[in-house]
Nucleic acid binder design. Structure first.
Lengths: 207, 207
DNA sequence: TCATCTAGATTGACTGGTCAATCAACCGGT
DNA sequence: ACCGGTTGATTGACCAGTCAATCTAGATGA
């Protein structure tokens, strides 16, 4: 049943590693990082305790792997968006959309990443601060571009917008995670439009 | 030397309790809640280990006391602002100002509250969610009022703005705490104006 | 004035439990 | 008979919370 394991060389071995990661997502999402024991991960994965340490140096390394895998996708998507020819507003919308879709398609993983890493500034947040910051910078650069080409006003600092934009989106995700707000498909789409509309258009009524 | 201890009855006793709280602020801010041992608090306060448990039921109770004390001030300030006759924009500015000033005057305490409670949705954040939410609601109500009297557009949900507004401000505080952004007096004032300008005015250039 | 009493404040050694990480042994396929 | 994958009992460290003992200062009374 297991394939030839052509290039990677290992047949079902990699599956166990993957099973551990998937299990970790579930357990971290359910209990939070601090409250989960390594044995919880092993149990959820249907694997012996020690095997976790065969594939990962530590409990922290498991979390780091989850974060890095997904965050690099986010950053790559951001780079793609930045390279495009769209208007700044459409670019911001695309970034917001990508994050929100990530949540839509894998809420547990995104919950873990946002709650346990991005917003946990005292533990993982500090460790991965450079990568997190990179995401903010992408937004800031899009804003700066909009300022250069005249679509955006120049009296609001682009870096400042980058942080605010992410702050708002992360807060929304938190709201969905903890059921402060309904998490339906319409909410997701509505939210993407609203963040962008709020940041770009502002609350003030125009006449 | 100690006063008569008229009403409260206890002379220097209360001081020790206070000393423990102040020490907890410093230690929590320095190491984070999870990484601080109760003995760290006692040492910092210059007090015996057991005394912490004389005044507080648990380590968690110390944190809760810190949060509740300060958060009730924030909520009270919010109520005051809401009751005023100012324009919605000025009210939002006042709320942002109060939070930012809290940080300016007691950065350690605000660091603890924002990082360890407000944004730690899996531990204290969950416990104090109702109170935290109350703060978001105040902003939402101010926005809703602005929508009713015609100064704000009505196609952006007021609750949504409440969360985004706080999300942005908390992100700014995090930026200062972890030195992503310079934390000078000019920055503080500039930030207050920029959040409000961004949320109300929006990025788009007006012609 | 001073001895005694009392209640709360203060001390820190100790207990009980938890859990991350290790490791020696045990597969099963080649 | 070899080797990576796999097992789970064991170890060692850590730490929140308990508790019995000690201290202090004001109150009472002779």
């Amino acid at each position: 049943m297991p394939e030839t394991g052509t290039e990677t060389g290992r047949p079902a071995a990699i599956d166990k590693r993957r099973a551990i990661l998937e299990a970790a997502i579930l357990v971290f999402a359910r209990q939070g990082y601090h409250a989960t024991r390594v044995s919880d991960i092993a149990d959820e994965a249907g694997v012996a305790y020690g095997l976790v340490y065969h594939y990962f140096r530590s409990k922290e390394a498991v979390m780091t792997e989850l974060f890095t895998e997904r965050w690099s996708l986010l950053l790559a998507a951001g780079e793609d968006v930045m390279a495009g020819e769209e208007s700044p507003r459409v670019k911001l919308s695309a970034i917001a959309g990508f994050i929100i879709d990530s949540y839509r398609h894998n809420p547990e993983l995104m919950k873990v990443i946002i709650i346990e890493v991005t917003r946990a500034a005292n533990s993982f947040g500090r460790t991965h601060l450079p990568q997190i910051r990179e995401a903010y910078d992408q937004v800031a650069q899009i804003v700066a571009q909009g300022q250069r080409d005249g679509t955006f006003r120049t009296d609001i600092d682009a870096d400042f917008v980058g942080m605010s934009f992410y702050g708002a989106i992360e807060q929304l995700l938190s709201g969905w995670v903890f059921e402060l707000m309904p998490a339906t498909d319409e909410e997701f789409d509505g939210a993407r439009e609203m963040v962008v509309e709020l940041i770009c258009g502002g609350l003030d009524r125009r006449d």
